[in-house]
Structures are given as C-alpha cells and as structure tokens.
Amino acid sequence: MRDRNGAYFQLNTSSLRQASVVGGLSLSSNLICHAALQAEMQPWIEMECFQLSQGKRLGQLDSIDLGNQRIVRETQEATVHKVGATPANLCTLSYCSLDPACRFSEHDAGNAGTIFFMSEQTEFDIYVPAGAQTTYISLDQDEFLSAARVLNPAEWENAPSGVTMLYSRQKALFQDAVEMWFKVAAMPGNAMHADVMRRLLFQTMLQIATTTTQDNASNLPAAARLRALRICRDARTFAENLLETEDLPTIVELCAAVGVSERTLQYAFRTYAGMSPLVYLRKLRLNRVRTALMQASPSEMTVTAAAMRYGFLHLSRFAQDYKRVFDETPSVTLAS
C-alpha cells in the first residue's frame, strides 16, 4: 500500500516495515519482533542473532542503502547476541552507545571517542544490551583503503585486520553525519542523487578514519577479553553441534571440550554475555524453539514437539520461560 509520498507499507506477523525510495536511494525502517529477522534485514553480512532478555519486540532497525555503501542504525529494546562474518571486500566503521555492557568481539564500548573498524572476512561476536544503540557504515574496502593510504599512509599503509578499536576526536562528526543522512533520505521529493550522497558519505568516513589512533583503553585487559571470547565461542559452537543432533550439552562436557575449569567457564561467560553458561545455553535453546515455531504451521508441528526437540521436558516451566523472554506464549507464536 502506498501513501501520497510514494512510501509503501508492508505488514506481517513478525515485523513492521516502512521503506521508500528517494532520489535513487533506499530508506527503510523496521520494527524487529524476532531475532532471526534482525539478521535477515542485513543480508549483505552473514549473521545470526539470538534474543537474551525479555521482550516481544527487540527494537528497531533503520537503514539507508546506497548500493556499495549502507548506513545501519539498530536500537535495542531487548538484549541480543550477534555472531557472523563480513564478506570479501566489505569493511565497516561503527560506534555504539556508551553502555559498559556493550561488547564488540573482545572490545567493550570504550569511551566517548571510540569507534570500531572491521575489515573484510572478519568473524564478529557482538553483545548489545537492552537500551543500547549501534550504528555502522559499510563500505567497499578496496576503495576505502586505497584512499585512506593516500591521506594517512603511516596509519593505513598496513591496514588493521579483524575488529580494531580506534579513537577519534571526530566521533561527534560521525554521529551528526548519520543523523543528517537519515533526515535527508526521509525528505519527500528530495532532489539529491544517491551518487552525491555516496561521495559525501565516503569523504566524511575517510576524514574520521584517517584522524584516528588505536586505543586499547578498556575496563578489562584486552588479552582477558579475547580469551573469554575464544572460550565462549568454542563452547557455543560445541553446544550448537550437540543441539543439531538433539543432544544436550552439560557443563562437564563444555569444560572438557574447551579445556577449562568450571570457574574459568563461568567467568568467561559473565564477561562474554553477562550471564552464566547455563542461563545462556537455555536462552539459546529458547531462541531455537521460537525459530522452529515461526517457520512451521500448526499442522506441521506442535509446541510440545518443538520444546522437546531442544531439551525442554518440563513443559509448564518451558512455557513460563518462553513467555518471560518473548512476551507471548509458544502457542501464539506457532499460530502467527
């Protein structure tokens, strides 16, 4: 359905999406009601999302698509955990709200001047608490690095790989630029062409990135955060592999598989996700059930079958936990 400004609105049971095409660029705004949708709304990056705190609605995702550049702003109403990897020749510059619980791979939110550079083909692991906001710009990496080396060869001749925490005195410019682009993109009848916006956005990101320095300031030593990340990533992979075979991992098995003590595993998960490994794994299984229920119809699956598939044998407790996290009963999810 179109309104008088040419915007169209699409309603379904999982999300509310508003999108429009203005001056050759694509602007969209989405209410996120399921973690899997948060990943699907960003198909240019391989990603999986899990909901970790209570809420029927996870938040909102706003994006501007400029072809080989994208601006993405995510506002969380429920805590999410995002894992994935960037494709070849795509890098990002990003920042997040100053929430001490925010984690970008082994880095925390840093300070008022912190931004993050993530290179192509980088595995990432991001924890975003409820109430936080993250924003990133995706760019053509070859184009970006070529220009950055001209402007600041000392810092960018050997470009950083993976996720790198940078400090910029121009972070405020980054934030102001993002707000400006969304306002411009939302203006009906705007005559600015997408290629003009692309050039301006590219130059702004270059200016910000080439006036940064590496900053390892953190409330926790970087080596300790990196070790926690590796421990929990290995534990999560081991647990997911068992779940695929409809087996349930125990803490003993996790410790044996990763090669750490229970105390180390507990400490790592507190750093990694702000909760114990048992709580995290239970919420991981709840997310798996919700995905299965949303993808099936009542004629294909029952709530009991989905719950038991992922190890929830105490069905009344499962239903209570499910409603506590997702703000709806599993039967409602299946019927949607």
Results as ranks from 00 to 15, higher is better:
321 D>P: 02
156 W>Y: 14
132 A>F: 02
298 P>N: 08
224 A>D: 14
294 M>W: 04
272 Y>T: 15
81 H>A: 06
156 W>K: 02
219 N>Y: 07
277 P>H: 09
135 T>C: 11
284 L>K: 09
327 D>E: 15
63 S>V: 08
15 S>P: 00
124 F>D: 13
27 L>C: 04
245 T>K: 13
50 F>A: 12
214 Q>K: 13
235 A>Y: 05
106 E>T: 04
280 Y>R: 09
7 A>V: 01
311 G>W: 03
111 N>L: 07
225 R>V: 13
274 G>M: 10
94 S>P: 06
252 V>A: 11
37 L>W: 03
314 H>V: 10
45 I>N: 03
291 T>W: 06
34 H>R: 13
56 K>S: 10
137 I>H: 07
186 A>T: 14
289 V>I: 08
149 R>T: 06
330 P>G: 02
97 S>P: 14
284 L>V: 04
100 P>S: 09
325 V>W: 02
211 T>S: 14
106 E>H: 09
203 Q>G: 13
80 V>A: 01
271 T>A: 12
124 F>Y: 14
210 T>N: 00
24 G>H: 01
19 A>S: 05
84 G>F: 07
101 A>S: 15
119 S>Q: 09
188 P>W: 06
13 T>R: 12
161 S>T: 13
99 D>P: 00
34 H>K: 09
331 S>C: 08
163 V>L: 09
227 R>V: 11
173 L>V: 12
305 A>R: 13
322 Y>V: 10
4 R>N: 11
174 F>L: 14
205 M>R: 03
122 T>Q: 04
236 R>A: 14
103 R>N: 09
47 M>W: 02
270 R>M: 14
234 D>C: 07
160 P>W: 02
5 N>T: 11
311 G>N: 05
57 R>S: 15
35 A>T: 07
317 R>A: 11
107 H>D: 03
285 R>G: 13
316 S>C: 02
228 A>I: 13
189 G>M: 07
178 V>H: 00
232 C>P: 07
323 K>G: 07
261 S>N: 04
317 R>T: 15
276 S>L: 12
240 E>Y: 06
170 Q>N: 13
189 G>V: 10
49 C>P: 10
95 Y>I: 03
48 E>D: 12
248 L>H: 08
4 R>F: 04
74 E>P: 00
168 S>Q: 06
97 S>G: 15
20 S>C: 07
266 Q>K: 06
49 C>A: 12
307 A>N: 04
126 I>F: 05
159 A>C: 09
329 T>W: 00
55 G>D: 11
68 N>S: 11
120 E>C: 01
269 F>V: 13
95 Y>M: 05
195 D>K: 08
14 S>T: 15
318 F>P: 03
246 E>P: 03
199 R>Y: 09
82 K>L: 15
194 A>M: 10
53 S>E: 12
13 T>W: 06
59 G>H: 03
23 G>F: 00
76 Q>M: 14
98 L>W: 04
52 L>C: 07
296 A>T: 10
257 A>P: 11
14 S>L: 15
122 T>D: 05
181 W>G: 04
212 T>N: 03
196 V>T: 15
213 T>L: 03
330 P>L: 01
50 F>C: 10
313 L>R: 10
196 V>K: 10
71 I>C: 01
